[in-house]
Amino acid sequence: MHKYANPARFNRLANAILPWSFGVMAIAFAYGLYQALVASPPDYQQGETVRIMYIHVPSAWMSLAVYMVLASASFVSLVWRHPLADIAAKASAPVGATFTALALFTGSLWGKPMWGTYWEWDARMTSVLILLFLYFGYMALWRSIDDQQKAAKAAAILAIVGVINVPIIKFSVEWWNTIHQPASVMRMGGPTIDGSMLIPLFTMFIAFHAYFITLLLWRMKAELNERKIQIMKENEVLGQ
């Protein structure tokens, strides 16, 4: 019974949240872009290039945050068999993968003028790249199993194993990085963040979060409707 009662309640909740999250997203993006590109001053060391940070850092943050959402949802779906949880996990994966890819892309465009290289095998970039692979594997597993309930469980197991591995991977990559001591130009975390950078950065953080919530709700609603349609069609076939 709760299987059918829950989606209706979720739909009502989602409909209540969506206008707000969409509104916050639109305003925060508009204000954040204005702040990031126009109002904030160039950095005294990095010059105008610092502006890339205002989209790079939120993307990188979201890439990990979304994976945590995905893993927690997977955990809830495995332990309490909550049907909405695996829908949430499935819906968040492509969004998280997109953030991860954007973090790598903007990072490399930031790295070229700053450190003279598009790609450096430093610990952070390497871990983010591996995180992208984890997202790919997760999405590929969902796609390859036809039975949705089985796919949900298998993907949930993978997501939980993945989240246990994230700190191990991080640790191993850092270890690897200190051993190889690249003859590197790259020094992360050099200049401290100036007060004038906090406004655009913070606004963009809000915008990215609101964007994720909005997309997650849209995708979850679509997924729910798709399943409903499938059940209706199956019933029709059985009825005839």
Binding site: T49, I52, I55, F105, W110
Partner: peptide, 9 residues
Amino acid sequence: FIWLSYGIT
């Protein structure tokens, strides 16, 4: 670099 990263993002 700046416009490309903002544009594609």
